Simulated scan of single mutants.
Amino acid sequence: MRVVAAMSGGVDSAVAAGRMLDAGHEVVGVHLALSQSAATLRESARGCCTIEDAGDARRVADVLGIPFYVWDMAARFKHDVMEDFVAEYSAGRTPNPCLRCNEKIKFSALLDKAVALGFDAVATGHYAQVVERADGGRELHRAVDSAKDQSYVLGVLDADQLARAFFPLGDTTKPDIRAEAKERGFYVASKPDSHDICFIANGDTKGWLTSRLGEQPGEIVDAASGEVVGSHQGAYAYTVGQRRGLGLDRSHMDGDPRYVVGVDAASNRVMIGTSDLLGVNAIRGDHARWCGPPPEGVVEVGAQVRAHGEEVPAQAWASGDDVEVRLSGRIRGVAPGQSVVLYDGTRVVGSASIAKSWLER
């Protein structure tokens, strides 16, 4: 097969490209330029897509002896990921940009361009596994390394995208991947992993949002009493479950911690309360994406609402683009805009964007 190996400049995508070549595929390395003003050097483990990263990817391609190209997708990334990120926070929702990037960039824009150029598939360094069924269909499963499993952020892939996706690292642990990279002579073998939001290199999400949305002063309100207990400079900077950075005067409160329990974008209010107001056991999701046929009727699943969160037994049923999920127990800090990803054992069933969550007694 002719395969585009998406090469970020990190160790995982480097080994993924090498493994695809070892498997006998015709491999071309592609680095995605996602920033319209890329930094020259990486300053920390945060961020990505610097000129230094592109150079690291090119050096790996040279070691492997494969062609290498840089594809400019900065405008598409800005529209589909960064502007979406701002719009979601502005609406009082908490998005996961990694899911959006996988859905809109790596397995849409990149895959579409690759297919248009005559390639058969895209390979990435994600930690997940693709299992082929006897009937030729493909399933997405969790990685062997549970600490690095990235199946959650791939839950947005549909059956057609999954049919053209390879994840060569899913059967290996991260320490073994680094050891393999060293054996292959890759300069990036000990390069730190990227983490957090790639386009906010300093990790200051609040500051980044404020620079784009401006200060929007509003009230912090006690959800139980309706009393105004504080003020903020922008409700968009808060998310359900948040405890730190509330800036409350605790002198008139009891000793229980306070958390964000709701963000009302329309009134620019942040609602706070005690932990008992955070627990939910019912979720309604929209924008459903299925990694195969949609479930029929009520099905038993595992539900996960964060990239490294705990999977909770649940029942789910689909209705058009919507999904209803009933959890076996309460979970805390479920925010609109997050994604709920559904599992059947290790298999990813699909995902949806959380529109509402509540406690059903």
Score class of each variant (00 low, 15 high):
M1G: 11
V3T: 13
V3E: 02
V3M: 02
V4W: 10
G9A: 06
S13E: 06
M20P: 01
G24P: 10
V30I: 15
Q36D: 15
Q36C: 07
A45P: 05
C49G: 00
I51H: 06
A54T: 00
A54M: 09
G55R: 05
D56E: 14
A57K: 12
R59V: 02
G65P: 03
I66E: 08
P67K: 01
V70L: 04
M73R: 03
R76V: 14
R76G: 04
K78A: 01
H79Y: 13
D80C: 12
S90L: 13
S90P: 02
A91H: 09
G92V: 02
G92E: 09
N96L: 07
C98T: 13
L99N: 15
E103N: 12
K104I: 11
I105L: 14
F107W: 09
S108H: 14
A109F: 15
A109G: 03
A114Q: 04
A114C: 04
V115Q: 02
A116P: 01
A116D: 11
D120N: 15
T124N: 10
G125K: 06
H126K: 04
A128Y: 00
A134I: 14
G137P: 00
E139K: 05
A147V: 12
D149N: 09
Y152K: 03
A159P: 08
D160R: 15
L162Y: 01
F166E: 08
T173V: 14
T173H: 10
K174S: 08
P175T: 06
R178T: 14
E183M: 09
G185E: 05
S190N: 15
K191G: 02
P192K: 03
P192W: 12
P192C: 04
C198S: 14
N202H: 11
D204W: 05
G207V: 06
L209R: 13
T210V: 09
L213H: 02
L213Q: 06
G214E: 07
G218Q: 12
E219N: 00
V221Y: 02
D222Y: 13
A224Q: 10
A224L: 13
S225F: 00
E227M: 14
E227W: 08
V228Q: 08
V228R: 15
G230P: 03
G234Q: 10
Y238Q: 10
Q242E: 10
Q242M: 13
Q242W: 00
R244D: 06
L246A: 06
R250W: 07
S251M: 09
H252D: 07
M253H: 14
M253N: 04
G262S: 03
D264Y: 14
D264R: 07
D264T: 04
A265F: 07
N268P: 06
V270P: 03
L277G: 04
N281L: 04
I283G: 00
W290P: 07
C291H: 08
P293Q: 11
P294N: 11
G302I: 01
V312W: 01
A316M: 09
W317M: 02
V323I: 15
V323N: 05
E324M: 11
R330A: 10
I331D: 03
G333P: 04
A335G: 04
V340L: 13
G345I: 07
G345A: 11
S353V: 15
I354H: 08
A355M: 06
S357R: 04
W358V: 09
